[in-house]
Write a protein that binds this DNA or RNA. Structure first.
Lengths: 157, 157
DNA sequence: ATGATAATGGAAACCATTTTCAATAGCAAT
DNA sequence: ATTGCTATTGAAAATGGTTTCCATTATCAT
């Protein structure tokens, strides 16, 4: 049940058209699920949620759509080390805040944080410029992740 | 053919014993392969190389040993997005230089860089402290990766 | 040398993701 | 609305890196 807030076509339609992609029910539903959550959903998570409203949307389509969304930069794909990829909207109408992840290597818990992001962004900006100059590499994206033990897992030791 | 440079037991024996792990031919061979290369080897890569000198070491053991090495912090495990994990010695007798990766999202090429590392390390230090204070998270490791198009792949467009 | 048990390897299992392919649906042009 | 071209889809099968099983072997403290 995609919602439009009574405001005409969703904000991402233009982005789709620009790439020559068609707008389909499955794609609307998947994008809707992603924009509705704060979690780091796996392909199967997305599939299960979409499946409630659209039982005829298959897992294959979810994988294909997520890949497409990553490709056009609407979605970030993460690997938290548990053997399945996780997906997150990279931006939204409300302008999802840029954040990074803290991954517990024991229980797999993932904490989003936005602290220090400003410093990081500044550093990344400098590094990106330097690296693209030196290696003639056109940087489009970056990943920062911290690993360690969350509070709960420290106690268990 | 593990080499000792005529200097008594390899530097990592202590690390093994400290964790209660036994020292075996397979483990020596695997560690040797890792310390002999500058590349980002996959488990299979390691297996194939080890296999030349020790045909009786199985792929399963390679996976198990690599996991063990990651666990005790001797090896870093990376995901460059090509569906197979890559392994790198985290430190060595010579003190392998800390570096990060530049991953080409088109051809998969990976470039190591050490530039800006000092800035990054400084930032990471601050971030780690702040994050462990705020979330009571004991940070043991971090990952920074840049993605983009390498020079060769930019031309193709 | 001995024994307790950690480590091993080959085969089978696992499981997230991808591929195949015939059927369907989006959309520009009519 | 209708048509035609072709992108998209879903179900099932295939893929392929990684893990698990389990009987055998090797390590190392005693």
């Amino acid at each position: 049940m995609p919602r439009r807030d009574h405001m005409g076509p969703p904000w991402w339609h233009g982005r789709f058209r620009g790439h020559g992609y068609r707008i389909t029910v499955a794609r609307e539903a998947i994008l809707d699920v992603l924009s509705q959550t704060e979690e780091h959903l796996s392909a199967e998570d997305v599939y299960l949620t979409v499946h409630k409203s659209y039982p005829n949307v298959g897992l294959t389509t979810v994988y294909r759509t997520l890949e497409l969304l990553v490709h056009i930069g609407l979605v970030f794909k993460f690997d938290f080390g548990d053997g399945r990829a996780r997906y997150e909207l990279s931006e939204g109408p409300k302008g999802t805040r840029h954040h990074h992840h803290l991954v517990c290597t024991n229980c797999g818990r993932v904490i989003d944080y936005t602290d220090f992001i400003d410093d990081e962004i500044e550093l990344l900006g400098r590094a990106e410029k330097g690296l693209s100059d030196k290696f003639n590499f056109r940087i489009t994206n970056h990943l920062i992740q911290f690993y360690g033990l969350c509070d709960r897992c420290q106690k268990k030791t």
